[in-house]
Simulated assay, not measured.
Amino acid sequence: MQAADQGNATDLDGRDLVIGIVRARFNDAITSRMAEVCHAELLALGVQPKHVTTITVPGALEVPIALKAMADQDDYDALVAIGCIIRGETYHFELVSNESGAGVTRVSLDHQVPIANAILTVENEAQALARVEDKARDAARVAVEMANLMDDLL
């Protein structure tokens, strides 16, 4: 067992990684921008364009099943979930937020593949727009860092 603390070293070298992105189409203006920013950050971290696959699903509840299909292929070092859930007047917000989050986590744990969860859960469109750039960039960085960490651990 190594005595080194691997938690202090951030490995953001994406040169040898294959990353999959699943984007929910619901709230398209927000999620399409998030996908663009995430993709650009992945390329900036060295991931080759041919090693980034983006698929689109109708909404946040469909994200986990698409992530599972990608994880089943065993071709991806990490995945990214992109979506935007804006609170409405009914309980539906909580249902979609909770179930999509639980689904993303389940796929990650079941397949031992890191998934950066960039599904925004916000009160209104203004909050979503304020978070698009940072959340998408962070998701790319989390995907690369965790893929490298898992490679070291497994």
Rank of each mutant, 00 (worst) to 15 (best):
G14I: 10
V132F: 02
A71N: 06
N98A: 09
T105Q: 10
D110F: 09
R25D: 06
N98V: 14
Q48M: 12
P64L: 09
K50L: 12
I86V: 12
A35V: 04
A102L: 15
F26N: 07
S97P: 05
P114C: 06
E99K: 10
E99A: 11
A130S: 15
A116Q: 03
R15N: 15
G46V: 00
E62I: 08
C84H: 12
V96W: 08
R23C: 06
N124L: 00
N27E: 15
Q73I: 04
I82S: 04
E41C: 02
V80T: 09
V22N: 01
F93Q: 06
A9H: 14
M70G: 10
I65W: 12
A29W: 11
A128V: 09
I21N: 00
N124I: 00
N98F: 00
D77E: 08
A116K: 02
Q73R: 15
L109S: 01
D75C: 07
D72L: 13
A136P: 05
D134G: 00
Q48K: 15
E125Y: 15
Q48P: 05
R33A: 15
A126K: 15
V107H: 04
G83R: 02
F26S: 06
V122L: 11
G101P: 00
M34I: 02
A9R: 11
E99D: 11
F26L: 14
A29T: 14
T31Q: 07
P49S: 09
I119G: 08
R25H: 08
G20E: 05
Q48C: 13
I82Q: 05
A71C: 02
A126W: 05
A35S: 13
Q73G: 14
L42T: 00
L79K: 05
D13Y: 03
D74R: 14
R87A: 15
D28H: 14
S108A: 10
I86Q: 11
A116L: 06
N117S: 13
T90M: 05
K68S: 09
C38Q: 06
E99Q: 14
A128H: 07
R106H: 13
T105Y: 08
D74A: 15
V80L: 08
D134R: 06
A128C: 13
L17D: 02
D72T: 12
A44V: 05
Q48F: 08
V107Q: 00
S32A: 14
K50F: 12
K135C: 12
G103K: 07
A126P: 00
N27R: 07
T10H: 13
G88H: 10
N117I: 03
Y76K: 04
R131F: 03
R131M: 14
E36P: 03
P49H: 10
I86W: 09
T54W: 01
V63K: 00
D28L: 10
T105L: 12
I65P: 01
K68W: 07
T105G: 11
D74P: 04
I119K: 01
A81F: 08
G103P: 07
V18G: 01
A40P: 01
D11V: 07
E89K: 11
A44Y: 01
N98T: 13
E133W: 02
V132H: 01
A66Y: 06
L12V: 09
D13K: 12
P49K: 11
S97G: 04
L43D: 04
L43Y: 07
L12S: 03
A71I: 01
